[in-house]
Design a protein around this nucleic acid. Sequence first.
DNA 1: ATAACCAAGTTGCCTGACAAGTGGAAAATT
DNA 2: AATTTTCCACTTGTCAGGCAACTTGGTTAT
Lengths: 239, 239
Amino acid sequence: MAQHSRDILGRAPSLADTLALRLRDEIVSGRLRPGERLATEQQISETYGVSRPTVREAIGRLKHDGLVVTRQGAGAFVADPGAVSVFRLDVADFTDKEEIRNIVELLMAIEASATEHAAARRSDKDLRNIQAQLDAMQAAIDRGEPGVEEDLAFHRSIIEATGNPFFRDLSDFLDRRVRTFIRTARANTARLEGLTQAVQAEHQAISDAIARQDASGARLAAETHLKNAAGRLALYLKP
Amino acid sequence: MAQHSRDILGRAPSLADTLALRLRDEIVSGRLRPGERLATEQQISETYGVSRPTVREAIGRLKHDGLVVTRQGAGAFVADPGAVSVFRLDVADFTDKEEIRNIVELLMAIEASATEHAAARRSDKDLRNIQAQLDAMQAAIDRGEPGVEEDLAFHRSIIEATGNPFFRDLSDFLDRRVRTFIRTARANTARLEGLTQAVQAEHQAISDAIARQDASGARLAAETHLKNAAGRLALYLKP
DNA sequence: ATAACCAAGTTGCCTGACAAGTGGAAAATT
DNA sequence: AATTTTCCACTTGTCAGGCAACTTGGTTAT
């Protein structure tokens, strides 16, 4: 049961952490049904041999994740899955390549769709912002820099134009995740050079399609760009 | 500042909740930089006028969300954004129509892409599962039932065929969210009847495309299905 | 029968305390 | 003087015990 498992930094998980995990398991496995009451803090404290504050901390996390709701004086109850208003995505491992593949797949789906929507309903201000980021990227290339920050800013400006905060937050998280993976993986492999201008051309095509409000064209341009990026990334995912 | 704001159920947010919110704001706003140390529990306890256990609870949530890491004896530190391995999506309101629109948009992007991938790499077992769910839905229709459960199961079987857990978990959450919205909204509006057979025809088209491993065809079929579904949903989003 | 009340049980929050780990300053050694 | 060792203040992790606020179901009074 991985009793002595440790996290990434080598620290042992706290009591509250492990307890929260066990309680969570009780719920997601279905042993505790929605609406059902959990044992009282006192009881849990006794059965697991920890103090009540620790139990409170564990339950507090489940509450934070929307899995349980507590009512003072009444107890803690398993939340109705339909009423859960918190979505939580746990990315376990930094080096798991299968996981990165899945993340990239999700990221591509979101970015392609977002680009399509951006083209359909961008304001003039959105367009100006996108083109400004494109210029900034070109300037970085001219200075001989890789321009990873500018690249990210360009993509973000497109997502921003959709006006959908879910697109923004999710792609932000996934994008960051992928880029840090690349950064760490790059330490072990040769650097890829001379691609930036090709990338920029793809960006230009996306920007142009958005400028003329060509939704399907924008999606296509984004898809080819993402496919190429995934192809470059695949070099790190091979073995 | 919504000092006396209350949650959906009319309960006042706990002290730890509000404190966690304020500390979170310190971080995401950038007033506390990555790597920087938070004030000690003692200090926070004094500045905010709450006890240390409450402070611990608040910090515990940030820790749970990956925003801070703590080291016993050293203190609590703002986590490096690139290292954050937890994504959290907070859906605030049940009745916010703009929010539902955004959720549906994200859901459509995911489902369309997932259907495409499912067609490309489904196993025979996946296909059998999908067709079984389709048959179950037909049986429900023949019995004169709306078949919402079967509908959900059909969609899930397709997502499952992608083998990507992120697709599964996200669409699961979003789908549930949309359906509960519809359920509550439906109480105030007339019931829509006689559409189930039309829906089923769209399902059939998707299933067929997946069966012949026609990725782009599957995407197209999914897109029309989703667009129609969104159109039906739009009736609830009008005012 | 109904309404008001009460008491046990439960969560929310607090004080105070000790153990375990960290980091730097002070002391000891080379 | 430079380096290593030791030590101590500080911080987080955990515990014990207690009181206030709230819920619930039964009891009592009307």
